[in-house]
């Protein structure tokens, strides 16, 4: 990590921003390119940046992995996560046992 600090790739710079900012920047780039006021080099630069942002956005969108967990207090008093099975249509938690033990 330390040595990476000196040379930051664009991907790392992109990592610093969130999805919303990336999307906003992508939109600005699309608009700028559509205006057509940029020279060829700058257009290509901006386009490449835009494609990086689009990739970043797609990755961000797929980052989460569908998982529904319920926090339970074990006998030792520690809270742990337990994955539960949920019916997509109703949102109903399928296994009744999972509902045992609130945080109280």
């Amino acid at each position: 990590m330390e040595k990476k600090k000196t040379v930051k790739s664009d991907a790392e710079k992109t990592e610093k921003i969130n999805f919303e900012k990336a999307l906003q920047q992508l939109e600005e780039i699309a608009e700028k390119l559509e205006d057509g006021d940029l020279g060829l080099d700058e257009s290509i630069n901006q386009f490449e940046k835009g494609m990086r942002l689009a990739k970043f956005c797609r990755e961000k969108l797929d980052e989460a992995e569908r998982k529904i967990e319920i926090l339970q207090k074990g006998a030792d008093g520690h809270v742990r996560k337990k994955e539960v099975d949920v019916d997509d249509g109703t949102g109903e938690i399928k296994n009744e046992d999972d509902l045992q033990g609130s945080l109280l």
């Binding site: 797929d62 989460a64 992995e65 569908r66 998982k67 529904i68 967990e69 319920i70 926090l71 339970q72 996560k81 539960v84 509902l99 033990g101 609130s102 945080l103 109280l104």
Partner: peptide, 12 residues
């Protein structure tokens, strides 16, 4: 958002 992660903290 079909791939969202949800953590439920049960409460009374």
């Amino acid at each position: 958002y079909p791939t969202i992660e949800i953590i439920i903290a049960p409460a009374v």
